[in-house]
Amino acid sequence: MAFEQIDKTLVTHDLVQDLKWDAELRAQFEADQVSVLDRYPLKPEERTAIDTGDFRKLYDMGLHPYLGGQLARLMYGNAAGPDATRAVNRLIASLTGEERPDDRTTA
């Protein structure tokens, strides 16, 4: 994804930053994702893409890939090893449409 495709005004950027920086908000997100997302003025298609884990759609809307990778870790696992590997594989699967096992560690 080229830099010029990034939409710096996308609200999802603030969501990801807040989740990284606020442990209490992150705990709420893990317990009840809907209630946290309801607080952000996301566009309807942006909200649907987060609800369904559709990173391709979010990137098409201008999500910064670095924050996309972090959103995947917030959703699927952040710890080094199997957790983060699962997050990476699910992100790639969404972006490419290919089937990927959660534990794959190669291109």
Partner: peptide, 10 residues
């Protein structure tokens, strides 16, 4: 490296 991209492992 390509963090967050479709070539994440590349």
């Amino acid at each position: 490296h390509e963090p967050g991209g479709k070539r994440y492992f590349f």
